[in-house]
Design a protein around this nucleic acid. Structure first.
Length: 923
RNA sequence: AGGCGCGUAGCUCAGCUGGUUAGAGCACUAGCUCGACAUGCUAGGGGUCGUCGGUUCGAGUCCGACCGCGCCUACCA
């Protein structure tokens, strides 16, 4: 066995072994456990968020598989309408071809070709994480079956009046030429201006000649159809119903009264542009105003506007309009103004409220049962707080615009005849038959559905719905959805609505919401910030120069390259080590606290790489001893000593904490419990204890057999316990360890997960070992504090001690001697003044130092200890002198305090005596 | 504006239904090539738990106010 762990040499082989043997598919027995992978975008590549999330899911999946459930981890990708279309268009561009040159059908062929060639990137990257997804049943949202589901849902919703077509304002992306939903609009504060414009009254009223309206978007004035004031605003009440002459046009528009206007803001007059602003649209509806659309689909001024502006881009139009107003002295003032600018999340173009025909899902009737399902506990959020976010959104939900002006996606199953009649059905043939249309000319809607529409069906469409399949029967509703809070609205809420509507059951019983992975400074990872970490680089390692190159190429803003390079060189002066998958996974698990931000610091993974090595070497130790001892450990004749009973008991406690952690999605606590057990109990103490037995010629073979057996069977259990967290190293080591116990199965991943009940708790052993530890640590402390060379064998005198402690010492003398590097232990009742002192329970240990001791140093050391004990004495006695405490606190708390006070007093006395004794040696 | 959350050691974070002397990892200091491991071993230093007030015998933990920070949603043209 190598002296240190090398992940690279084993990971790929084991993964191939698992996948080839189909260990990832449900085995067909046991109660079902199912998780739906949030389907990643097919154009995507694996980022830290995926890696983190998939690690947590894989822990759950492997854990339940080892607990004999019939486990399905349903995987796949989504077709990502806009993103994919953009990728393929960009490719075509290099051949100087546009999608319009190709036409719809050929373009879609191109997309499929791209998907076949490149669509597996992210799935293959996932494999590197060791994820045990059911690849044999991987799905894609554009698959035949999933497309059937989409059509079925659309038709049913339409028939029930829950899908409708309407001309309304939508968020229009003028670059991508498509509508997008509210959620795809990212609004951020940007610097802009507030222009105050004068609108002259058609006929002046008394001394008022014009109204001043303020706007952040002057160009929309060409579409104004009213000016609104507040109905109770005395300044303008006499103007209501009068008209203003809209500058730069020849139109007269009315002055109307509407509650929407805030009289306190600006002049209290608002221009109303119903076709280009969501609020104005509402006002327009209330007052029956005309909606004048002044833009083309490219956001260029159309011919509804005066001639001189037609054909101008919206930003050029703005400049010209401001200049023209200024010339006519109609611009009162310009102020700097911060405002929220809405941009499309894909194109980054400023989104335009735009009047078009779109398909909408009427959401309110779907939302109601979805709210109830969470209220009634049918679906539980973990942590529970997220339910509030969910409710908040669901109770204020607006209709969902589901049509997209794209080619790649599920084409809307609606057909039109020449008279504009709409027919919705699964296909053209069905529609013709159902409506007796004969061979009447029909045209299918050009648009496709929002990608999230198909994603919302994922939990049941992947299982075969609308067919009543066995898989659907077995695995739906699924057990838990693991996802980030950023898509509660996009996805979680919509799945719940659709799941309830079409299956009558919630799609999952629990929703575990994890935090979002950020960089070590808490910044979101993004290409433009140059702080992205590729999980595969953490696994395989990367040279600094390669990392710099990777981070600085293909930037949207190339001027950032220098800054990114500098900070990369600063953060990773030596590049990134090859940590291997298991280190990364256990790091992720330990970072999975309840918080919403997860800062990923490279130092953290360093520690867990060391942990892998620790396990590796512990195994190496065990195997070396098995080999050198030449004892058949499967022979029945074994004696289990104190240390064996203790480590077994500790394992039981650990497994309890681990299982509890997994059950409550506290992966941090689960992994911490295992980490501490392996390092602080098994390695630090038990392996050392075992040396004392194994190296002692006086010990019987039965005792040695008991120890060897315990070394192996604890190791076997902890490897199984760790397997969901660290699948590769545990598999590798298990195959070296398990055969010793006559276990010879082909994989650890189908072994049973160790349970606390298989290992006996032994409180007496725990207590005894605790005392032994305190004895040993007391001696070590003296050694260290008094600068005694580590190699020097000590003579220790003991004084006092309870009967129990004397028994423990007697029984475990050899063990204690070995661990404390002690030559002999002699009881004494004499005063030993030239000695350093420590306590283990009621027993006093004295290390006579004769020639080594400097009495002053020891005097100082003991004084310090006494000071601390005095502080504690004060606290405890104050507490106990407080009548209320003694009367009202529970008995065990009071008794505990009393006991501690007694102990403290006795300790003080012991140290005090020694202090006096030493004082005699002082000059 | 509304909603949610955070503030504990130099850093990153645990701390469940209030009850020993507030923990871990990393970092730091000192000392160690002893037969698994220097990716290691041993020992150690370091916190008035954001501030103020309240409830309580007892508050890092519960309540209120304030300060600071973050996120989400909706926005006044």
């Amino acid at each position: 066995m190598d002296k240190s762990y090398n992940p690279k040499s084993i990971e790929l082989d084991w993964y191939n072994h698992w996948e080839k043997n189909n260990y990832f598919s449900p085995k067909g027995q046991g109660s079902s456990y199912c998780i739906m992978l949030p389907p990643p975008n097919v154009t995507g590549s694996l980022h830290m968020g995926h890696a983190f999330q998939q690690t947590l899911m894989d822990i759950l999946i492997r854990y339940h598989r080892m607990n004999n459930n019939d486990v399905l981890w349903q995987c796949g990708t989504d077709h990502a309408g806009i993103a994919t279309q953009m990728v393929v268009e960009r490719q075509l561009q290099q051949r100087k071809v546009s999608r319009h040159d190709l036409g719809r059908e050929k373009f879609i062929d191109e997309v499929w070709k791209w998907k076949e060639a490149s669509g597996n990137t992210i799935s293959n990257q996932s494999r590197r994480l060791g994820t045990s997804m059911d690849w044999a049943n991987e799905r894609f949202t554009m698959d035949e079956g999933l497309s059937d589901a989409v059509r079925e849902v659309f038709v049913q919703l339409y028939d029930k009046g829950l899908i409708y077509r309407g001309k309304r304002l939508v968020n229009w992306d003028p670059v991508l030429h498509t509508a997008i939903s509210d959620l795809e609009v990212i609004s951020e504060e940007e610097n802009g201006h507030l222009w105050h414009m004068r609108y002259p009254l058609a006929e002046s009223v008394k001394d008022i000649e014009h109204l001043v309206v303020a706007t952040t978007r002057p160009e929309t004035m060409l579409g104004d159809t009213a000016v609104a004031v507040h109905p109770d605003d005395d300044r303008y009440s006499k103007l209501i119903g009068k008209k203003v002459s809209l500058p730069l046009t020849d139109r007269l528009i009315p002055i109307i009264a509407d509650e929407y206007v805030d009289p306190e803001f600006g002049s209290g007059c608002v221009k109303i542009t119903p076709a280009h602003d969501f609020n104005d649209y509402e006002v327009g509806e209330r007052h029956n105003l005309e909606k004048i659309n002044i833009f083309t689909a490219d956001a260029i001024i159309n011919n509804a506007a005066p001639k001189q502006y037609q054909g101008l881009d919206r930003f050029d139009a703005r400049k010209k309009i401001i200049a023209d107003l200024e010339n006519k002295k109609l611009l009162e003032k310009v102020e700097d103004h911060k405002l929220m600018i809405p941009r499309g999340d894909r194109s980054n173009a400023i989104v335009e409220p735009y009047l078009t025909d779109q398909w909408y899902v009427k959401v309110k009737p779907l939302a109601e049962p979805a709210i109830k399902a969470v209220e009634n506990g049918l679906i539980k959020f973990v942590p529970k707080n997220w339910e509030k976010t969910y409710f908040e959104w669901m109770r204020n939900i607006e209709d969902w615009c589901v049509s997209r002006q794209l080619w790649w996606g599920h084409r809307i199953p609606a057909w039109y005849d020449d008279d504009g009649n709409i027919f919705v059905g699964h296909n053209e043939k069905e529609i013709r038959e159902k409506n007796n249309l004969g061979d009447k000319k029909l045209k299918q809607d050009e648009d496709v559905l929002d990608t999230w529409f198909s994603s919302s069906l994922w939990p049941f469409s992947t299982l075969g719905w609308p067919k009543k399949t066995e898989r659907l029967e077995k695995f739906y509703p699924t057990n838990v959805l693991v996802t980030g809070f950023d898509i509660i609205f996009f996805w979680v809420a919509r799945m719940i609505m659709m799941g309830l509507k079409f299956t009558g059951e919630p799609p999952f019983k629990e929703v575990y919401i994890h935090g979002l992975v950020r960089d070590s400074d808490g910044q979101k990872m993004s290409k433009s910030k140059g702080n992205v970490l590729d999980p595969l680089d953490l696994i395989d390692g990367i040279e600094l120069e390669d990392l710099v190159r990777k981070r600085t190429t293909g930037l949207m803003q190339p001027q950032l390259a220098k800054k990114i390079e500098k900070s990369t060189r600063q953060h990773f002066p030596d590049g990134i080590n090859a940590y291997g998958t298991d280190s990364l996974r256990i790091t992720f698990a330990s970072l999975a606290t309840q918080g919403r931000d997860i800062r990923f610091d490279i130092g953290r993974i360093d520690g867990y790489r060391n942990f892998c090595n620790k396990i590796w070497n512990a195994t190496r130790f065990v195997l070396m001893n098995i080999e050198s001892q030449k004892i058949d450990i499967n022979n029945d004749k074994k004696t289990f000593g104190l240390t064996e009973r203790w480590i077994t008991s500790q394992l039981s406690t650990t497994l309890n904490a681990t299982q509890e952690g997994i059950k409550t999605y506290r992966f941090d606590l689960a992994s911490q419990a295992l980490y501490e057990f392996v390092w602080n109990e098994y390695c630090d103490w038990y392996l050392e204890f075992s040396k004392s037995t194994l190296n002692d010629k006086a010990k019987s073979e039965e005792e040695k057999r008991g120890t060897l057996y315990t070394l192996v069977y604890i190791l076997d259990a902890l490897l199984r316990g760790l397997h969901p967290f660290m699948p590769f190293i545990t598999e590798e080591l298990w195959h070296r360890v398990a055969p010793i116990l006559n276990k010879n199965s082909e994989t650890i991943m189908l072994e049973s997960y160790p349970s606390k009940d298989e290992f006996e708790r032994d409180k007496k052993a725990d207590e005894e070992i605790e005392w032994i530890k305190s004895f040993v640590m007391g001696i070590r402390r003296i050694r260290s504090e008094r600068d005694i060379p580590p190699g020097k064998e000590l003579t220790v005198s003991t004084k006092g001690g309870s009967k129990k402690e004397l028994g423990w010492l007697n029984k475990n003398e050899l063990l204690i001697k070995m661990l404390g590097k002690i030559e002999k232990i002699v009881p004494t009742e004499d005063e030993v003044s030239d000695a350093a002192l420590a306590l283990a329970g009621e027993m006093t240990m004295l290390v006579p130092l004769a020639d080594l001791i400097n009495p002053q140093d020891e005097h100082n050391r003991i004084s310090k200890i006494i000071d601390n004990l005095e502080k504690e004495k004060m606290q405890l006695s104050t507490k106990l002198e407080n009548k209320s405490f003694v009367e009202r606190a529970p008995k065990d708390v009071v008794d505990g305090a009393k006991q501690r006070l007694t102990d403290t007093l006795s300790d003080i006395e012991t140290y005090q005596e020694q202090l006096e004794s030493i004082s005699k040696l002082l000059p």
